[in-house]
């Protein structure tokens, strides 16, 4: 047989092999790699236990906005687990999922939450304790660009919320904060690298789970976590993408997958990977106890994404005005 005949045949074989089992594509954001690697394994075992055929679950990771764009442009994800509700809202505008998707699952469709904390160099040489210290002269702050990183929008809004609560002019405060930023990376992982590996900056604004991960991977003797007096309740939501469901078997699998995140076992995994989950019944008590208490401001207290997104991060919005006067 010639090569020309072999290639289509090989493609057909691959395609039919893939179709034999029910598959699921979960399109997620950057820092959830470790979490979903374990969730996928645990869920596959759980699903097989219930007498189903072993599912083929794949997860793709990347910047939250870029991942949302892939789904909008046709990536056939049955499940999205992104950093921001506004990214899933954007997918909803294409009709691939209902606009009230966030009410379909408990806790605003967020099986786990996180917050924004500070990672500082060992022994905290600049004495950073709270948001107010970040605008001091000579303090260098590392955060990714809120325009390109979902996580950085939470950083920015946490600073905003603190300024509002402490009777400071929030726009002026975040302006001063970003004046202290020497490098604006495009993503959360990039910012962590800049801070941890390149030695730039005195403080990194990070997802709480990223900060703990950095401590675990890079050594507790190098960095300390500083928890500010107030931060934001970051809700990375999950949703089923109706438009990409092929058949009932796939719907059943996708629904079970998302529900699994809310089971005690799923919640325990979230705790283990430094996410603040809701149900601690099956979690290791140590995993739960390591979260310090702090005031958490919800996104709805600030006005909700539908209002915040264009106002702050839209073209010419408040963030743009920090750098260029309107």
């Amino acid at each position: 047989m010639t090569l020309f005949r072999l290639i289509p045949l090989a493609c057909l074989t691959l395609a039919s092999a893939a179709q034999a089992q029910t598959t699921l594509l979960n399109v997620s954001y950057d820092p959830t790699r470790e979490l979903y690697r374990e969730v996928n394994e645990a869920f596959a075992a759980h699903w097989a236990e219930q007498g189903h055929e072993a599912p083929g679950i794949e997860t793709s990771h990347g910047g939250s906005g870029a991942q949302a764009r892939s789904v909008i442009d046709g990536l056939a994800a049955q499940v999205v687990t992104l950093a921001l509700a506004s990214d899933i809202d954007q997918i909803a505008t294409t009709g691939k999922l209902p606009t009230d998707w966030q009410s379909k699952l408990p806790h605003n469709s967020s099986p786990y939450t996180s917050t924004i904390v500070f990672l500082v160099r060992d022994t905290n040489p600049k004495g950073i304790a709270d948001w107010g210290d970040l605008t001091a002269e000579g303090v260098e702050v590392i955060t990714p660009n809120p325009k390109t990183s979902g996580g950085a929008r939470w950083n920015y809004l946490a600073a905003w919320a603190w300024a509002e609560a402490n009777d400071r002019d929030p726009a002026e405060f975040v302006g001063q904060l970003f004046a202290n930023v020497p490098v604006l990376d495009t993503g959360a992982r990039g910012a962590t690298t800049t801070f941890a590996q390149r030695g730039i900056g005195d403080v990194l604004l990070a997802w709480e789970n990223e900060a703990y991960l950095a401590l675990a991977e890079l050594g507790e003797d190098q960095f300390d976590i500083v928890v500010p007096s107030l931060s934001i309740l970051a809700e990375p939501p999950v949703a089923l993408v109706e438009g990409n469901i092929a058949d009932d078997a796939q719907r059943e699998l996708a629904t079970a997958y998302l529900d699994y995140l809310y089971t005690p076992e799923g919640q325990a995994l979230a705790f283990k990977h430094y996410y603040r989950a809701w149900d601690a019944s099956a979690a290791d008590p140590e995993d739960v106890a390591r979260f310090p208490d702090l005031d958490l401001v919800g996104i709805d207290d600030l006005g909700g994404w539908a209002k915040l997104q264009p106002e702050h991060f839209g073209d010419g919005g408040i963030f743009d005005q920090i750098y260029v006067a309107p």
Binding site: T148, T186, Y323, V324
Partner: peptide, 18 residues
Amino acid sequence: NIPLRTEIAPLLIVIQLE
């Protein structure tokens, strides 16, 4: 990637896409 100082044009395109 600081606006006005070290921000290249292709990054601006990516920002608009975001």
